[in-house]
Design a protein around this nucleic acid. Structure first.
Length: 787
DNA sequence: GAGCACTGC
C-alpha cells in the first residue's frame, strides 16, 4: 500500500508557501490595472508522478491504437500503480482511489480489472455524473480495447443504451441510470464490480449510490456466508462446498467489488463510510499554475473581471496597458498566445461583460493583439458553444466568459490564464417554506483549485483570483456542501422507499441530510398518496411513481390522468414541463435557442444597443402570446407543443413561431419514453397515441384537475384586494410578469415555481377551480383549515 | 412589469 500511497496527503496544488505582495510592474496599472499579490514561487507538485513502476507482464497492445497512442496510454500515471491496485482489490471488497486530473483513472482502472479477471462473473459498471462523459469515455475505451462500441465496452444513458447483458463487460453508465437499475435489482447482481467516478462532486446520485453499493455488498457477503454454511451443514466433503448445492438454489453471486474514485482529498469520508477501506493515491499530470490574488477586496466583480481580462491580455502580450504608441516593448512577450477563461455566475452577467469587453477592447493600445470575447453557458445553442471552443484565428486571443459549466462539464482547450470571480449560483431548498431559491454564493477552496487547474491543462499557466488571499484561506469553505444537504428530497426518499428502505431517517447516508428536509419529503409523499399513512410503506401508486423519471408531483399528476380521461394530453404536459431549456425563444434569425443567438453575436459588431438578453426575453413573451391559453402558462406550453407536433417539428415552422426546436425535440423524446413506460407499468394507451394537437374542452378540464392532484400544495387564491395568497404557506405572492395570466387574474391558480427576487413571484400558472382542492386533496386541506 | 448555475432519470 505504502508504495502507491507514498503520500497520502499531498500538498495542495496551486497554493503558495509564502505570500508575497507583488504589485504588477510598478505604478503602471493606473485606472485600469488591478494590483495583485503573488506567491513567491509557482508551486504545483502534482506535475510529478510519485508512484513506482511495478514489474510484471503487461497485456498485449490493443490492435486499433497506434504504437504511439499505446505508449502514451501505458505512460499514464495510473499504470504505475496497476499491480498495487489489483492486489488491494483482491484483498478488500472496497477501495478508495484518489487520482488527480490526467492520471487516466477513468479509462484505465476498469481495463485493469477486466484484464485481471474481475469481470468473469459479471459486468463492471463505471458511473459518470454526465451523459457526454459516459459516451465519450466508453467510445475511447472501446477503441483502446480494439472492440466495437456496444460489444465488450458500452454505455448506458437515458434514451441511449448500447450495452448487452452477458456481452458488455465494461459498462459506462450515468449515476441516475444505475440508481434506476438498483430499484429493479437492489443487489446489483448483474455486476461483479462497481466503480463510482467523480464522487468528490457529491451529487445526490453518487451519494445515494455509495449507500446502495454498500448495502448490496453486505447482503451479497451474507448470502455467500449462508451458502458456505449451508453446504457445510449439508454434509459431504470438500467438493460439495465448491459446487454449492442447496436445493435448487442458484450459485451465490460473487462479492461485489467497489472502487470509489475521487479527484480531491476527501478520501477519509469515503474510507470511513466503507468500513475503513484502504486509500490509494495516484498522481496526476498537470502543469504548474501560479495564483495571484486581489490585493484588496473588489466591489464590482464583473467590472473587475473585465479589467483583469484586458490587463492579462495586454501584459502577457508584453504591453503595458497605459503604454503609448512610442513605448512598444522591447520584448515581444507571448503575443496572443494562450486564451483567457473567465468564471462568472450567469448568462445575463456574461452578456454584459462581453459588451463591456468589446467596448473597451476598442481602446486598447496600438500594437495590442485582438481580443475576442466568447460567452459560454448551458443555455447557449450547441452551435454557439462549439464556436467558443474553436481555436481563435491567428493573432487573436479568446476570452471565454463562462459559468461553472467550464469547471467540470466541458474543457476549453488552449486556456493558459484563468480569471476567477470566486462566485457561483447555487440552488437551495428551504424545507420550512417548501421553496427553492437560486443565489450567488462564494465558491469553495476545492472549486477555486479546480478553476485554477483549467489554466494548466496543456502547459504552465496563471490564475488571477478576484478576491484576496485572506478570503481564500480564511473565508472559503474547504468544499461545497454535498447536494443532498441542500436539495428537495422528495425524489430521493421515493427512490429509497422503492429500494426497500423502511426507515429513511435511520438510513446510513454518506452525509445525513437535514432531518427537516427528510421529514418534509416524507410528508409531501404522504399527501401525494405515495406512502401508506400507517406503515410508511410505498403504496401501489407510490411504487408506480418511483418508476417514472419524473419529479414525484408530476408522476402523481400523470397517474391522476387516468381518473380524468386525459392520459394522452397529460403525457404531453408532463413531458413539456419536465424538460429544461427555454421553449419560447425569439423568432426571426433562426436558432435553436434564443439566448444562444444573442450570445453568438458576441463576435460580431451586433453587440451595440441594449438588446441582449432583455430583447430575447420580450421576444419570448411574444412567442408565448401566440399560443396563450386562458387557462394559464402550462396549457400554453401544451398548446405550443401540440401545434409543433402537428407541424412535424419543422425547423422553419419552429423559427417562425418563436419555439425552440431543440427543447421541443427533447420534450418529444421524453413523451415517447413516458408512453413506453406507461404501456409497461399501467396498461395499453387507449387512444392516447392520438397526438392531440388541439385539446377538447373536456381534456383541458381533465389536465387541470389531474395537475391539481399533484400540485395542490402550490395553490394560490386571489384576495378581495386583487393580490394572491399561497394557500399552504399563507404568504402573499405575485404573478410573474412573464405569465400569460399577468393581466388576466383568475380566482384560483396552481403554480409550478416560486422565485424569490424583488418579490415572491409565482410562475407557470394553471387556472383551477378552488373547489377541486378539497375534492382532490381532502387530507391536505382539512389539516390546513385546522392549522 | 421581470429575468432561468449545473447535472440527471
Amino acid at each position: 500500500m505504502e508504495a502507491i500511497a507514498s503520500i497520502s496527503r499531498p500538498p495542495p496544488p496551486y497554493l503558495p508557501n509564502v505570500a508575497k505582495r507583488a504589485r504588477h510592474d510598478g505604478s503602471a496599472s493606473g485606472a485600469l490595472g488591478l494590483p495583485w499579490t503573488a506567491p513567491a514561487r509557482a508551486s504545483n507538485a502534482a506535475a510529478r508522478v510519485s508512484v513506482h513502476k511495478p514489474a510484471g507482464a503487461r497485456p498485449r497492445p490493443a490492435p486499433t491504437l497506434s504504437e504511439a497512442e499505446d505508449r502514451a496510454r501505458r505512460e499514464l500515471p495510473v499504470w504505475a500503480g496497476r499491480t498495487e491496485l489489483l492486489r488491494e482489490l483482491e484483498l478488500n471488497d472496497s477501495l478508495i482511489v484518489m487520482a488527480e486530473t490526467g492520471s487516466g483513472k477513468t479509462t484505465q482502472i476498469p481495463q485493469f480489472l477486466h484484464e485481471a479477471g474481475f469481470s468473469a462473473r459479471g459486468a463492471i459498471a463505471i458511473t459518470q455524473p454526465r451523459r457526454v462523459a459516459a459516451i465519450t469515455i466508453a467510445t475511447r475505451v472501446a477503441r483502446e480495447m480494439g472492440c466495437a462500441l456496444g460489444t465488450r465496452v458500452g454505455y448506458s444513458v437515458r434514451f441511449d443504451d448500447t450495452t448487452e447483458r452477458g456481452v458488455t463487460k465494461l459498462k459506462y453508465i450515468t449515476d441516475g441510470m444505475l440508481v434506476r437499475e438498483a430499484i429493479a435489482d437492489p443487489l446489483l447482481l448483474a455486476y461483479a464490480a462497481v466503480l463510482l467516478d467523480e464522487v468528490h462532486e457529491r451529487s445526490v446520485q453518487t451519494d445515494l449510490l455509495c449507500a446502495i453499493v454498500k448495502r448490496a455488498q453486505a447482503e451479497r457477503r451474507r448470502a455467500l456466508e449462508r451458502a458456505r454454511r449451508g453446504c457445510g451443514a449439508g454434509g459431504g466433503d470438500g467438493g460439495g462446498v465448491a459446487h454449492g448445492g442447496g436445493a435448487g438454489a442458484s450459485p451465490p453471486s460473487p462479492p461485489l467489488k467497489v472502487v470509489v474514485m475521487s479527484a480531491t482529498l476527501e478520501m477519509a469520508t469515503f474510507s470511513a463510510f466503507f468500513g475503513g477501506a484502504p486509500c490509494v493515491h495516484v498522481r496526476g499530470r498537470s502543469h504548474p499554475v501560479t495564483c495571484f490574488y486581489a490585493a484588496a477586496p473588489l466591489d464590482d466583480y464583473v467590472e473587475a473581471a473585465v479589467t483583469a481580462t484586458l490587463q492579462v491580455h495586454c501584459e502577457e502580450a508584453g504591453l503595458r496597458l497605459d503604454a503609448g504608441r512610442d513605448e512598444l516593448p522591447a520584448r515581444a512577450g507571448d503575443g496572443a498566445d494562450g486564451d483567457i477563461l473567465v468564471f462568472l455566475t450567469g448568462a445575463e452577467e456574461i452578456e454584459a461583460a462581453a459588451q463591456l469587453l468589446n467596448a473597451r477592447a476598442r481602446r486598447l493600445p496600438a500594437g495590442c493583439p485582438k481580443l475576442l470575447p466568447c460567452p459560454m453557458y448551458a443555455a447557449l445553442s450547441p452551435a454557439a458553444q462549439l464556436r467558443a471552443l474553436e481555436p481563435a484565428p491567428r493573432g487573436v486571443r479568446k476570452a471565454i466568459l463562462a459559468t461553472t459549466i467550464a469547471e467540470t462539464s466541458l474543457t476549453v482547450p488552449g486556456v493558459r490564464y484563468v480569471i476567477d470571480s470566486g462566485l457561483t449560483k447555487s440552488r437551495r431548498f428551504h424545507a420550512g417554506k417548501g421553496v427553492d431559491t437560486l443565489q450567488v454564493v462564494p465558491i469553495s477552496k476545492a472549486a477555486a483549485r479546480q478553476r485554477a487547474g483549467r489554466a494548466g491543462r496543456e502547459r504552465a499557466g496563471k490564475c488571477f483570483r478576484l478576491y484576496t488571499e485572506h478570503t481564500f484561506f480564511n473565508e472559503l469553505e474547504a468544499s461545497a456542501p454535498a447536494e443532498i444537504a441542500r436539495a428537495n428530497l422528495a425524489a430521493v426518499v421515493l427512490s429509497l422507499k422503492a429500494l426497500g428502505v423502511t426507515d429513511v431517517t435511520a438510513f446510513e447516508f454518506v452525509q445525513s441530510p437535514p432531518r427537516a428536509a427528510l421529514l418534509a419529503a416524507l410528508e409531501h409523499l404522504l399527501v401525494l398518496g405515495a406512502l401508506d399513512a400507517k406503515t410508511g410503506a410505498l403504496t401501489p401508486t407510490g411504487s408506480l411513481m418511483a418508476r417514472m423519471p419524473l419529479e414525484p408531483s408530476y408522476a402523481r399528476a400523470l397517474l391522476a390522468a387516468r381518473a380524468h380521461d386525459c392520459v394522452g394530453p397529460m403525457l404531453t404536459l408532463t413531458a413539456v414541463m419536465s424538460v429544461e431549456g427555454a421553449l419560447f425563444v425569439r423568432g426571426g434569425s433562426g436558432g435553436a435557442a434564443g439566448a444562444g443567438e444573442v450570445g453568438a453575436r458576441a463576435d460580431g459588431a451586433a453587440h451595440d444597443g441594449g438588446g441582449g438578453i432583455a430583447a430575447a426575453h420580450s421576444a419570448a413573451d411574444a412567442a408565448r402570446a401566440r399560443f396563450a391559453s386562458q387557462y394559464g402558462d402550462v396549457l400554453t406550453r401544451v398548446h405550443a407543443m401540440g401545434a409543433a407536433h402537428a407541424a412535424g417539428y419543422n425547423a422553419d415552422w419552429c423559427r417562425a413561431h418563436g419555439l425552440s426546436k431543440r427543447t421541443l425535440a427533447s420534450a418529444e423524446r421524453v413523451r415517447r419514453q413516458l408512453c413506453g413506460l406507461w404501456a409497461r407499468l399501467v396498461g395499453p394507451l387507449a387512444g392516447a397515441e392520438r397526438e392531440a394537437a388541439v385539446l377538447s374542452e373536456d381534456e383541458r378540464r381533465g389536465v387541470r384537475r389531474a395537475l391539481t392532484a399533484g400540485f395542490f400544495a402550490r395553490a394560490a387564491v386571489r384576495q378581495p384586494n386583487g393580490r394572491y395568497v399561497a394557500l399552504a404557506s399563507r404568504e402573499e405572492v405575485a404573478v410573474h410578469p412573464s405569465s400569460v395570466l399577468f393581466s388576466r387574474k383568475a380566482p384560483c391558480v396552481l403554480f409550478q415555481e416560486l422565485v424569490l427576487t424583488t418579490k415572491r413571484y409565482i410562475r407557470e400558472l394553471t387556472v383551477i377551480d378552488e373547489a377541486w382542492l378539497a375534492e382532490l386533496a381532502p387530507d391536505f386541506f382539512d389539516d390546513d383549515e385546522r392549522a
